[in-house]
Design a protein around this nucleic acid. Structure first.
Lengths: 211, 211, 211, 211
DNA sequence: TATGAATGAGTATTCATTCAT
DNA sequence: GATGAATGAATACTCATTCAT
């Protein structure tokens, strides 16, 4: 509703502008994922998006900005989806399940983005200097915190064991990330979400637990 | 004993040569970890190691080679340490414990290297063309397989639940990697190995299991 | 007429582009002739042509390409001039006279190019690997063949003695080349073409012949 | 006789030294001829001659020096052979014949050297700055002058036509040089000297002369 | 004496970014 | 608004030459 309205209120000019901006981002996402940040040149982005180089620069101030915007917006979307899923879930257990499910679904639809996302956490070193770079790391931490809070909630409800919540959040995130990473590398056609039950079983009861 | 002997057998010249080579690798490791592969220039490596640029090239044919050799040799060392630890352990459970302990110890001592190691898996896209790049990926897979085998062993001994071993290996590796990653980012002085019990508890009994 | 038309049909942009390209070639020709291929740097070519380095690279893919294009285009021009001259001549004798006259005139106007041209035949060893390098050698052989054919024609018309035509062509080419070479080295202001009668007399009647 | 004596007078040390120096020159000659001056590295010369790099520098002050010494000494030899041949000949005609015959023989035995020799005349541009480089050009001019003198002699004896001697010398040298060049390129096994009669016939009577 | 490891000065080439049109 | 030609700053790599051994 909001989006529609906001679009309607925009003139055709502005709408076209946004559409082109998004188009460039999509092209850049594909190229960055395929060849990596450094191996992708602005000329390639321009050519692949069928814009002139200078046009690209009217939308994004620099190559860095394209890259960071990419991360920024998609992570926002992911966080938003996670938030929605949590709100619809009741118990901590269900919430965790919901988060993982959303992540699997999301990256299943955004393979290209995952490559960039996974890679990014290292580039942080360099990018953290940039304002936008800092914000992305904050968002990543935000995701971790959300998870940690849920775990804490679960602990106080006697649902989960007394583990340090932040550290558990890290472990769980790492599990999921590695799982997705492997799936993308394998280039299998299997539905990533089909693995959810196993992951959850492992997550809740471990290698040995629950008979 | 063996190493000492083999060193004694080498001439002084050869010993010095190896020492210098190693010195360059160490410098490069620090720089790569600090600034990333692309941001580190050969001139910087030369200056920081107090060698002339061309001298660096007498030890390593290219910048790539330095990077890959770095990975190559340290991963070899890690795999060797893991192998030793496994041999000394009896049960699958102890073996997994040993692997994780070794990893935590290793990266506690090799913070710089971890940044490179973690980053590498993504750069694979580009590096896989290189012979040396392929070998490193093989080693990574080797590590996963070892873990998977132990899990399989545990399953057939009724020690672990019937999970798909390879996928469990991925999950566990991801957990550990994320944990180390977070620890390095936090720049805490806490002993990484002190976290072992928590990790193991989570790993074997999950969030909910074994009261 | 044709050229004018074809130029008129080109847009201003394309015309300018060609002009700049030619300008770079001219500058490179002067520098290569003065200092030789290896002693001439891309930076010098850029500076002397008052373009940025990268601009040079937009016109020519590499330093080699500049050099080879230079040879390529000028040799084409020379061959074209020779062809025209031959067509206007009647007898084999007149044709040979025409060829030599054209060559003398051409290099009189293209002193710089001669140095490059003469030198090239030796560098062939290295350049033959390049596609463009091979083509230039073919053109050189083409020039020799043309001369050889005319000699053959002259022989069958009873005009010339029964000499092996190809070898005569080589001898005559060598004569001319050495003559031009010496003239350029001497840096005399005498018209090179003024020497034509002597050369022809020697060529047709030898040191001793025709009283 | 002289050489033997002078050798005998030298100590073993000095004899060995000369022999090594010559060995290096021979190796360099082969390499320069194969790959050209710039493409040949000092390291290659060292390796191919089985000396250490610094040892090469004890014999020759620089790469340039090797190259120039090479030219220097072989040209000296050629000039000496030509001188001898001239002294044994009586008439100008016989002298010219002798010169050409000596050249053909010499380069037939020194193919490698010819490549360097032919190429050199262009490198002059760069090398003339060097003292040794100037001397080589002087020697080349000396050769031309000798030939010109003989022609002059022939003219005053009524043997040859009244041509400008220097220019004739240039034409003849060019002929011979081109002929040898073509022969080397063709890599034929035919004896180069077998072509002498044709060359002389052309040289003395031209394409048309003396039926 | 002989060496080869060490070196720095030099060079071709690339690419993000900016204007002139 | 849109373009792409122009650019300079940056960088991996080479090679003749020199010393320390």
């Amino acid at each position: 509703m909001e989006n529609l309205n906001s679009k309607d209120l925009l003139g055709r000019r502005e709408q076209e502008r946004r559409w082109r901006r998004q188009y460039i981002l999509n092209v850049a996402e594909r190229l960055f994922a395929q060849k990596g940040y450094h191996q992708t040149t602005m000329a390639e982005i321009a050519k692949a998006s069928e814009f002139g180089m200078a046009t690209i620069y009217q939308f994004f101030k620099s190559k860095d900005k394209i890259y960071l915007t990419l991360l920024h917006e998609k992570i926002d979307l992911l966080l938003k989806l996670i938030k929605q899923a949590i709100e619809e879930a009741q118990t901590p257990l269900e919430k965790i399940k919901a988060i993982i499910q959303v992540k699997l679904k999301f990256f299943q639809k955004n393979r290209d983005f995952f490559r960039i996302y996974a890679l990014h956490r290292q580039n942080i070193v360099v990018l953290l200097r940039e304002e936008l770079g800092k914000k992305i790391d904050e968002k990543y931490q935000e995701g971790l915190s959300t998870l940690a809070q849920i775990i804490e909630e679960g602990i106080s409800q006697g649902e989960f064991k007394r583990f340090p919540p932040k550290e558990m959040a890290v472990l769980i995130s790492g599990m999921i990330q590695a799982f997705i990473h492997e799936w993308i590398k394998s280039e299998e056609e299997v539905q990533l979400t089909s693995k959810l039950p196993i992951i959850l079983d492992f997550l809740f009861y471990g290698l040995k637990g629950k008979i």
